[in-house]
Protein backbone atom coordinates (compact mmCIF):
# COMPACT_ATOMS: atom_id res chain seq x y z
CA UNK A 1 0.00 0.00 0.00
CA UNK A 2 1.17 3.52 -0.85
CA UNK A 3 0.39 5.99 1.95
CA UNK A 4 0.09 9.61 0.85
CA UNK A 5 -0.28 12.34 3.46
CA UNK A 6 -1.27 15.75 2.17
CA UNK A 7 -0.27 18.34 4.76
CA UNK A 8 -1.38 21.25 2.56
CA UNK A 9 -4.91 22.62 2.33
CA UNK A 10 -4.90 22.22 -1.47
CA UNK A 11 -6.68 19.00 -2.46
CA UNK A 12 -6.20 19.49 -6.21
CA UNK A 13 -2.82 17.72 -5.98
CA UNK A 14 -4.36 14.69 -4.31
CA UNK A 15 -7.28 14.66 -6.75
CA UNK A 16 -4.77 14.46 -9.58
CA UNK A 17 -2.77 11.82 -7.71
CA UNK A 18 -5.86 9.72 -7.12
CA UNK A 19 -6.82 9.91 -10.80
CA UNK A 20 -3.38 8.88 -11.97
CA UNK A 21 -3.04 6.15 -9.36
CA UNK A 22 -6.40 4.67 -10.37
CA UNK A 23 -5.40 4.75 -14.03
CA UNK A 24 -2.17 2.96 -13.16
CA UNK A 25 -3.92 0.51 -10.81
CA UNK A 26 -1.82 1.66 -7.85
CA UNK A 27 -3.12 0.94 -4.33
CA UNK A 28 -3.02 4.35 -2.63
CA UNK A 29 -4.34 5.48 0.72
CA UNK A 30 -4.62 9.26 0.76
CA UNK A 31 -4.91 11.17 4.03
CA UNK A 32 -5.97 14.81 3.83
CA UNK A 33 -4.03 16.03 6.84
CA UNK A 34 -4.52 19.72 6.09
CA UNK A 35 -7.84 19.57 7.91
CA UNK A 36 -6.64 17.21 10.68
CA UNK A 37 -5.31 18.03 14.10
CA UNK A 38 -1.63 17.05 14.08
CA UNK A 39 0.69 18.50 16.68
CA UNK A 40 4.46 18.88 16.44
CA UNK A 41 6.62 16.27 18.20
CA UNK A 42 7.32 17.48 21.73
CA UNK A 43 10.42 15.32 22.16
CA UNK A 44 9.17 13.61 25.33
CA UNK A 45 10.75 10.25 24.36
CA UNK A 46 7.66 8.43 25.70
CA UNK A 47 7.25 6.51 22.42
CA UNK A 48 10.68 4.98 23.00
CA UNK A 49 10.85 4.73 26.77
CA UNK A 50 7.53 5.05 28.62
CA UNK A 51 4.80 3.66 26.32
CA UNK A 52 6.93 1.93 23.63
CA UNK A 53 5.48 2.40 20.14
CA UNK A 54 2.75 4.77 21.30
CA UNK A 55 2.88 8.56 20.98
CA UNK A 56 1.98 10.53 24.10
CA UNK A 57 0.08 13.04 21.96
CA UNK A 58 -3.39 11.74 21.27
CA UNK A 59 -4.36 13.44 18.03
CA UNK A 60 -5.01 12.55 14.38
CA UNK A 61 -1.45 11.38 13.75
CA UNK A 62 -2.19 8.06 15.46
CA UNK A 63 -4.35 7.07 12.49
CA UNK A 64 -1.45 7.85 10.13
CA UNK A 65 0.95 5.86 12.29
CA UNK A 66 -1.33 2.80 12.15
CA UNK A 67 -1.40 2.99 8.36
CA UNK A 68 2.31 3.73 8.10
CA UNK A 69 3.40 0.43 9.63
CA UNK A 70 1.69 -1.43 6.75
CA UNK A 71 2.81 0.96 4.01
CA UNK A 72 5.44 0.19 1.39
CA UNK A 73 5.84 3.87 0.58
CA UNK A 74 5.25 7.05 2.62
CA UNK A 75 4.65 10.13 0.48
CA UNK A 76 4.24 13.55 2.05
CA UNK A 77 2.82 16.51 0.19
CA UNK A 78 4.08 19.69 1.79
CA UNK A 79 4.19 23.43 1.40
CA UNK A 80 7.63 25.01 1.52
CA UNK A 81 9.24 27.66 3.69
CA UNK A 82 12.74 29.03 4.31
CA UNK A 83 14.38 26.67 1.83
CA UNK A 84 12.76 23.60 3.38
CA UNK A 85 9.36 21.96 3.82
CA UNK A 86 7.09 23.96 6.11
CA UNK A 87 6.33 22.98 9.71
CA UNK A 88 3.24 20.95 8.83
CA UNK A 89 5.27 18.82 6.45
CA UNK A 90 8.09 18.47 8.97
CA UNK A 91 5.71 17.53 11.79
CA UNK A 92 4.48 14.39 10.01
CA UNK A 93 8.13 13.31 9.71
CA UNK A 94 9.06 14.18 13.30
CA UNK A 95 6.06 12.19 14.59
CA UNK A 96 7.29 9.02 12.84
CA UNK A 97 9.55 8.03 15.74
CA UNK A 98 7.23 5.42 17.35
CA UNK A 99 7.94 3.08 14.39
CA UNK A 100 11.53 2.88 15.61
CA UNK A 101 12.67 1.53 18.96
CA UNK A 102 15.10 3.08 21.40
CA UNK A 103 17.58 0.25 20.76
CA UNK A 104 20.62 0.88 18.61
CA UNK A 105 22.81 -0.94 16.12
CA UNK A 106 25.37 -0.03 13.45
CA UNK A 107 24.35 -0.09 9.81
CA UNK A 108 27.01 0.64 7.18
CA UNK A 109 29.20 2.14 9.86
CA UNK A 110 26.61 4.48 11.37
CA UNK A 111 24.31 4.24 14.40
CA UNK A 112 20.67 3.47 13.67
CA UNK A 113 17.61 2.78 15.75
CA UNK A 114 16.26 -0.76 15.40
CA UNK A 115 12.90 -0.79 13.63
CA UNK A 116 9.84 -1.76 15.68
CA UNK A 117 7.87 -3.47 12.89
CA UNK A 118 10.49 -4.78 10.46
CA UNK A 119 10.90 -3.12 7.10
CA UNK A 120 9.98 0.57 7.00
CA UNK A 121 8.35 2.42 4.13
CA UNK A 122 10.38 4.14 1.43
CA UNK A 123 10.01 7.92 1.50
CA UNK A 124 8.95 10.42 -1.16
CA UNK A 125 8.18 14.12 -1.10
CA UNK A 126 5.91 16.29 -3.25
CA UNK A 127 6.36 20.01 -2.73
CA UNK A 128 4.21 23.05 -3.37
CA UNK A 129 5.50 26.57 -3.72
CA UNK A 130 8.92 27.89 -4.60
CA UNK A 131 10.43 28.47 -1.16
CA UNK A 132 12.34 25.18 -1.12
CA UNK A 133 15.92 24.41 -2.00
CA UNK A 134 15.26 21.24 -4.03
CA UNK A 135 18.85 20.08 -4.04
CA UNK A 136 18.94 20.28 -0.26
CA UNK A 137 15.56 18.53 0.08
CA UNK A 138 16.81 15.64 -2.05
CA UNK A 139 19.75 15.24 0.28
CA UNK A 140 17.44 15.49 3.29
CA UNK A 141 15.00 12.81 2.09
CA UNK A 142 17.93 10.48 1.30
CA UNK A 143 19.19 11.00 4.81
CA UNK A 144 15.77 10.59 6.46
CA UNK A 145 15.24 7.32 4.55
CA UNK A 146 18.68 6.11 5.59
CA UNK A 147 17.58 6.45 9.19
CA UNK A 148 14.60 4.20 8.45
CA UNK A 149 16.83 1.77 6.53
CA UNK A 150 14.58 2.36 3.54
CA UNK A 151 15.19 4.39 0.41
CA UNK A 152 14.34 7.81 -0.95
CA UNK A 153 11.81 7.93 -3.78
CA UNK A 154 12.83 11.49 -4.57
CA UNK A 155 11.48 15.03 -4.37
CA UNK A 156 8.91 16.14 -6.92
CA UNK A 157 7.33 19.48 -7.66
CA UNK A 158 3.51 19.43 -7.65
CA UNK A 159 3.64 19.97 -11.41
CA UNK A 160 5.46 16.64 -11.78
CA UNK A 161 2.78 14.36 -10.31
CA UNK A 162 3.11 11.95 -13.23
CA UNK A 163 6.79 11.37 -12.45
CA UNK A 164 5.96 10.82 -8.77
CA UNK A 165 3.23 8.32 -9.59
CA UNK A 166 5.65 6.43 -11.83
CA UNK A 167 7.65 5.70 -8.66
CA UNK A 168 4.57 4.31 -6.89
CA UNK A 169 4.63 0.59 -7.43
Amino acid sequence: MILIVNTTSDTSVTEELRKQAEAGNVDVDIVEAGSLKISHCIGCNYCWLKTPGECAIKDDYEMILKKLIHADQYWVISDTALGFIDHKGKNVFDRILPILTMNLKFVKGQMRHISRYGKNADVGLIIRGDAADKEYLERWVERAALNLESKSLGVFDESKIKEAVSCMC
Binding site: H40, A81, K90
Partner: peptide, 17 residues
Protein backbone atom coordinates in the same frame (compact mmCIF):
# COMPACT_ATOMS: atom_id res chain seq x y z
CA UNK B 1 18.91 22.96 18.18
CA UNK B 2 18.36 19.28 18.85
CA UNK B 3 18.44 17.33 15.59
CA UNK B 4 14.93 16.12 14.65
CA UNK B 5 14.74 13.80 11.64
CA UNK B 6 17.94 15.15 10.10
CA UNK B 7 16.97 18.82 10.38
CA UNK B 8 15.30 21.33 12.69
CA UNK B 9 12.26 20.41 14.82
CA UNK B 10 8.81 21.16 13.36
CA UNK B 11 7.94 23.52 16.20
CA UNK B 12 11.04 25.64 15.60
CA UNK B 13 10.15 25.73 11.90
CA UNK B 14 6.66 26.96 12.80
CA UNK B 15 8.19 29.82 14.78
CA UNK B 16 10.81 30.71 12.16
CA UNK B 17 8.11 30.93 9.48
Amino acid sequence: IPLYVECIPGLLMEFLE
